[in-house]
Write a protein that binds this DNA or RNA. Structure first.
Lengths: 180, 180
DNA sequence: CAAGGTAGTGAGTGGCCACTACCTTTCCCG
DNA sequence: CGGGAAAGGTAGTGGCCACTCACTACCTTG
């Protein structure tokens, strides 16, 4: 297998591991094991653990942006936004991306990670703005709801039976302008 | 100093340290140093590092709820919610609580931490509901915006000069029912 | 002043873990 | 078919860190 292919598979393994443990709570050992290579060889493919983490963060944000683009298709305006909202809920089934996002935010004390996270968030923001053409206020509300979804996934609220939790997990796209 | 007082001061030190590094990225050494005690004595006051982290999480959520109650005062309805919104923005000046919340969410892979975090979130949710008496939809939007504020604090968006970032950091309480 | 309890510390210890040095295999190309 | 680069592994190593143990200083109470 070529080094480039290996790098990709290591990246895929790292996303899964980092999503749960974060940068400091995940060992390179476990990533290597999941990728099916020896742990030292991982350092031939990525110079440092932090660099691998940053690569993971960048990939997750970029793929989420691509996910948005596919969801919007040829739509524009609030129709595009509704489609993107639904597509974000789709990520709930495999929570990896949502959890990785949280790990990125909570690791922002490190300047390099903060820079990467800002860049990813910015890319996401600009993608949503470009695809919908909607004003700041709508984009802001969409992202706010997205961040709420992230923590709902982290706490695994669907698993607890209480009503408010269940309501939160219903992917209803509420009307943008509630009449009244 | 009594053990109870020490416990409180250790807790205060731990909030600061955990807010930046999270559970796995923070050493008990640094917490003890900040609290002004020896590292072994920390384990006389808290049985384990994780237990200390959970105590921190519980305290932060409870204090945030208290913060809400003070902000609402005698107000009810959307007036109470607006007051609470502003009070949450106040936490931005000392971002410790917001960052700790993020650390809690991103550490939820551990079942004990997940349980504590769920409890804290639930307490916050019920406090907001009780104080305002507003329906689910309003509370949900408030929390969504709150989660967005958390990640804005983590990424320190006020520090970057771009327009969208600046707009996000303006604590305007948008009207609950935009006319039209 | 004896006796016991409480606050607090110095000196470990065992394990994990990021990262390194060096060796082996494979395979392509002239 | 020889050689060299690239893929990959084995065996460390040094440092950090959660947690323990054995001990001291002090304070209260009878």
């Amino acid at each position: 297998m070529s080094a480039e292919q290996r790098r990709a598979s290591v990246l895929a393994a790292a996303v899964e591991e980092f999503a749960h443990g974060g940068l400091t709570g995940t060992s390179t050992e476990s990533i290597a094991a999941r990728a099916g290579i020896s742990q030292p060889y991982l350092f031939r493919l990525f110079p440092t653990k932090k660099a691998l983490f940053i690569a993971v963060v960048e990939q997750v944000f970029r793929r989420t942006a691509t996910h948005f683009e596919r969801a919007a298709g040829e739509l524009t305006g609030s129709e595009a936004l509704d489609a993107i909202k639904l597509s974000y809920w789709e990520l709930f089934t495999d929570q990896t991306y949502l959890l990785t996002q949280l790990q990125a935010y909570s690791s922002c004390y490190d300047p390099d990670i903060q820079a990467a996270t800002r860049g990813g968030f910015r890319e996401l923001w600009e993608t949503a703005t470009r695809l919908t053409g909607l004003p700041f206020e709508d984009i802001s509300q969409f992202f706010a709801h997205g961040m709420l979804i992230n923590v709902i996934a982290a706490m695994d609220l669907p698993a607890i039976g209480e009503q408010w939790a269940q309501l939160l997990c219903a992917p209803d796209v509420e009307p943008a302008n509630p009449t009244g």
